[in-house]
Design a binder for these strands. Sequence first.
DNA 1: CAGTCTGCTGAACGGTGTTCACCAGAGGTG
DNA 2: CACCTCTGGTGAACACCGTTCAGCAGACTG
Lengths: 255, 255
Amino acid sequence: MSEELPALPWDRSRRRAAPVRVPLTPERIVDAAYVVLDREGYDKLSMRQVAAELGVAVSALYTHVSSKDELLELMYLRLFRGWEVPDPDPARWREQVAEFAREGLDRLRRHRDLARISMVGVPFSPEVLPQMEKLVTIFRLAGLPDPVAARAGDLLSTLVDAFAFEESIWQDRYRDSSDFSWTKVSETFQQYFEDLPPDRFPNLSALAPHMVSGSQNDRFDLAVEIVIRGLASFVEEAATAGESGDRSAPAGEPR
Amino acid sequence: MSEELPALPWDRSRRRAAPVRVPLTPERIVDAAYVVLDREGYDKLSMRQVAAELGVAVSALYTHVSSKDELLELMYLRLFRGWEVPDPDPARWREQVAEFAREGLDRLRRHRDLARISMVGVPFSPEVLPQMEKLVTIFRLAGLPDPVAARAGDLLSTLVDAFAFEESIWQDRYRDSSDFSWTKVSETFQQYFEDLPPDRFPNLSALAPHMVSGSQNDRFDLAVEIVIRGLASFVEEAATAGESGDRSAPAGEPR
DNA sequence: CAGTCTGCTGAACGGTGTTCACCAGAGGTG
DNA sequence: CACCTCTGGTGAACACCGTTCAGCAGACTG
């Protein structure tokens, strides 16, 4: 980078004030796309908005990114950057799985509507595999039978994605009412369930206090807990039934 | 409806051949939208296509349907038309829950990309409540504690939606390869996992045979089974712990 | 028969993703 | 130092999209 004095204002030999020309890269485009996403939301995330954010013509984007779909895929991959899953500890597998789920949810919540993008992301890219490997390792060391261990990660990430997705939808739906808050939404729906005719919906109205109460986190934690308990039942089953045949031992920590 | 003889072909007193003018209704619009959806898929489902399907100007739709979002919501509600959830039978609650999930998945699979619409549908409309009531009743009679029973239905339908959604995404991704089949896709991915370097991904490659094997239905059934087992653990917990206090008994079948 | 009113038409507005001819400017070469 | 090439921008265009609106035709009402 050559050290150059600023152009004198009246020096017409220089073409423009300071073109400087930071080179365009996929990286910078994704940065700008995230800025647009956070400010405008998924529905208004357009190539034109991203280009405007960079002060660049729309068509310039297409030399670095082949389509909007590819841009979304690149944004999706950011999700996994710097995501360190702790080393498997069989004694704490339940906590580790729950923490994994919470980390996923937190990451999806870091940017508005990110879950909308994540839901269509391809979950098998090289960037994602390390986390998958760790998660699968946790499941195998916990004692899950292989067919279950292989799919448990899939189930869990589907759940995380779907939960964040629904959160995003609800947030969008109520965004116009300027002071959005989950407590207000949940109050509204609690009222709705309470007002249901008890003769036609005896259980729904009886459960009104529980249908939407608690924080979003509570709701999520319960869902994860249900899944973990379901997985645990397979562990117990394998432990009692499989005393005899020793399956191929799962590999501990990859080196 | 007046009985009228067909116009003589040379009778020029009649304005057009047979305008007939079937009146436009939300119902017919939704019909046409489903035709377009099945033929073109979600991405190409546009108001213009729907209007063309009906042989009508685009703007005509807007007198019956206030926006595309409303049209999608109406399409979503069709999901629940004629969906009869069997009366709760506590002895068979696991089977009943599994059947409910399968019925939901089957309905979502009846139309291409329907899950994409379902995922953003509001699940509290009056059309949906009867099924919810039945499902919640099943959960309460099964012995689930109220806070869990209240959210179990939510978890289950989220799971069904998300599963069908992902299926839809994958189908779209491989639609161009004209002879799409799940078995071919799963073979491709099985190969992918087998080719993973075993030193970096020991468990992922060890589980390659299980990662994507089996039918989509197997995959789904296992996920549902995991959730049901998780729910069952709450039933057992409540049965052993709650011998003393008798909670308000859940109402059996609404009349 | 006149009048109103409902429900459709066609055109338009402002947006979208994507493509393409063109061109400026940096880099290397003679 | 002049020239040439070639990378990576520009701006206009295409074919769509959801939505709105003035106008009009035909059926119903008085």
